[in-house]
Each structure stands twice: as structure tokens, then as C-alpha cells.
Design a binder for these strands. Structure first.
Lengths: 180, 180
DNA sequence: CTTACCATGTAAGGCGTTACATGATTCA
DNA sequence: TGAATCATGTAACGCCTTACATGGTAAG
């Protein structure tokens, strides 16, 4: 089996526990998966069409609160495909932090500029942290009597821990730079 | 000014403190920048050619230990371009962790499989951590009497802190999953 | 002598973003 | 009635990876 396209797997994964529309999938990307994966409409809708063509998902029209939606459902083949992908060892984990890049080349700018980049980063992380903390407390209650969300909780905790570390680093970095 | 291509800036940033060949740039990507940026030869060499065409860098042949090399140097325009980019606020920091994805969809697999993914991640991080720790101690000595590497040290410390947190999370996650 | 590393590139093709295009509904 | 959000898509274009192609040198 050739290397799977990641977005196929992400979408199948989301569909594996509920039927969703393309719009809802995008929302999941922007909240639940935000801190370790991302995708735009321009990739989600075409991928969804592809999944249907390949028999890994089915498309169904439905109307909900006066709105027409296109609900996607995973098929047995889709589930098999997802399971196969989960068996394969992870190929690549990657980070692309423009912030770190701008810090790295700090010698070409004023210290104050570098500090601004750190502060902007810090604010963004603090915002996202709010969401993660709320998600964690909700999940902890749920997992207590239904453990199907335990993996979700695990990834949220990954996010919280790393974000916490980022914030710590921001403070230390600012302190360090003040001395120069 | 339109949105800058990131690789242009990364390369100019590297050239801003020393002349380098494409091959050496690739090596920097695989070591120094590894934990927050990456690039392949297939993108580095064409980008270098581009930079020369746009007058942001110059190319020069030279022979060193019997090898012919193509050394690239940043121009004044290149330096200006880099500085302009550093002034602009960061647009996007992104993570694409396949590992987290495979954990997130854990319900579709055995607990043992999820644990395998965590362990593979852990091993990879431990390996890279070795490099970072060595880099940190070298840098600390250097920075002591020459602070031009202070930003480099800062990013290395970012890497060490987050990797340390990742390893902590791995242990906690494995412990958590054992109970199910 | 052969493996590893130094060194530079090209071509095809995949993947994904941005911008554009459209239209309904809800709420203030 | 106008803004926000719901909802679905397409087209152009850019960027990057993979695989291919080539050849020199150092060290065991």
C-alpha cells in the first residue's frame, strides 16, 4: 500500500465516530485538532468527494433546521482503510514555527523586535490554552463514565502540557533578552 | 509587500552570518533547524538559484579540500529583505503531528497499538534530545564571551523544554492507558 | 574496492492554500 | 436590514517532496 494521504485519514477518523458535513469537519479542524493538524475548505471538500468515489464514505442529503446539508458517513471499506493506516508506524511529525525562525535570526533585528515576536506568540498560546482547559474539564467528566473519549483527552492533555511549557519559555526568554 | 516565501527567508537568515553551499544549508536544516523547520534539496537548490536571480544573494565557485563548491553570499538587498520580513508579525505557526493523529483515533485500534505509537514517538524524541543537550552546553560556553549566538541558544532551549514535556506526557499517557 | 559522505541538480506530480463565487438563515 | 454564521464548492497557483541522475573523494 502506497503512502496514505493524511487528510483522507483525518477525515475518515472523524467520520469513524459520527456522521458529519464538510462544514462540521472544518470546525473540528479549527478546534479539536487545531493544535496538531489543520486543513482548509479547499482541501476538505475535494477530499470528501474523493472518499465517496473510492467507496470509503457515502454522501447523503438531509435537512436540519431548514438547512440543506450533505452528511458524510464512513463505509466498512473506509473503516478498514483507517485501521490499516493506524497499524503503520508514524512517518513524519513536523513543526513549522515561523516564530522560532524569527527568533533564530534575531541578530538581524533589535532586541525589542524579538521580544515583540515572543509576546505575540505568548498571547496566541494563552488564548488557545483557554479552549484547551475548558475542553479538558468537560472531557474528564465524560471519560469518568464513558471512556470512548479517553484518546481525545490524552491529546488535549498533550496540548495543555506543551502550551504550558511554551508559556514558561516565553517568560524565561524575555528575561534572558533583557540582560543584553 | 506580498507574503514572503518562507524558504527564501530561512536561507537568507542562514546566509546572514556565513557563506554557505546548498549542501551545508541542507545540513543546517537537518540539525540546527530540525525541530522547528525543514526543507529538502529539491526546494533548496531552486530557491538558491532564485535568490541569485533576484539579486538577494550571489554565487561563487571555490575549491576546498579538492572539492568544487558553490558558495552563496547574501547581498545588501538580501539583508534588507530579511530585515523587512523580520519586522512583519508572524503569520502562522503550525504543527503536523501524525503521532497525535494516530493517538486521537485510538478507538479504532487496540490499546497496545496506541502504546506502540507513543513509544516510537518517545524514542525519536529521546534521540533528538541528545543532540539538543549537546548543542546547549556548547552554546552556553560560547555565549559567555560572544553573545551573537544567544538567539540560537534560545531556540535550542525551546526545543529542550518542549521535548522534555513530550517525554513526560509519553510516560503519563502510557500509564493512563494501562488502566483500560 | 566499496561504502559512506560530499556535492549539485532536475522533473513529475501531489497536496494544499488563497481567493473567488454563491446563497440561505438567524439575530440584533 | 445588515452582519454573522451556516453551508458548499471551484480554480489558479504555489510550494514542496520524492525519485531520479551524476560524479567526486576519503577511509577502512
Amino acid at each position: 500500500m502506497a503512502t496514505e494521504k493524511k487528510l483522507d485519514c483525518v477525515i475518515l477518523g472523524l467520520l469513524s465516530h459520527e456522521e458529519l458535513t464538510g462544514y462540521e469537519i472544518k470546525k473540528r479542524m479549527d478546534t479539536t485538532l487545531k493544535y496538531f493538524w489543520g486543513a482548509s475548505y479547499g482541501s476538505i471538500y475535494p477530499t470528501l468527494g474523493d472518499l465517496v468515489n473510492r467507496g470509503l464514505a457515502t454522501k447523503r442529503e438531509c435537512t436540519e433546521n431548514k438547512r440543506n446539508k450533505l452528511l458524510y458517513t464512513i463505509t466498512d471499506d473506509g473503516r478498514r482503510y483507517l485501521k490499516e493506516w493506524l497499524k503503520v508506524p508514524v512517518e513524519k511529525d513536523e513543526i513549522r514555527y515561523e516564530t522560532l525562525l524569527k527568533i533564530f535570526f534575531g541578530n538581524e533585528q533589535d532586541v525589542s523586535q524579538a521580544i515583540s515576536h515572543i509576546e505575540a506568540f505568548q498571547e496566541k498560546i494563552e488564548m488557545e490554552m483557554q479552549y484547551l482547559l475548558r475542553a479538558e474539564s468537560t472531557l474528564k467528566e465524560i471519560v469518568h463514565d464513558d471512556n470512548t473519549h479517553k484518546y481525545y483527552l490524552l491529546t488535549v492533555q498533550f496540548g495543555i502540557k506543551t502550551y504550558h511549557t511554551y508559556l514558561e519559555w516565553c517568560e524565561e526568554a524575555k528575561e534572558f533578552l533583557k540582560d543584553f
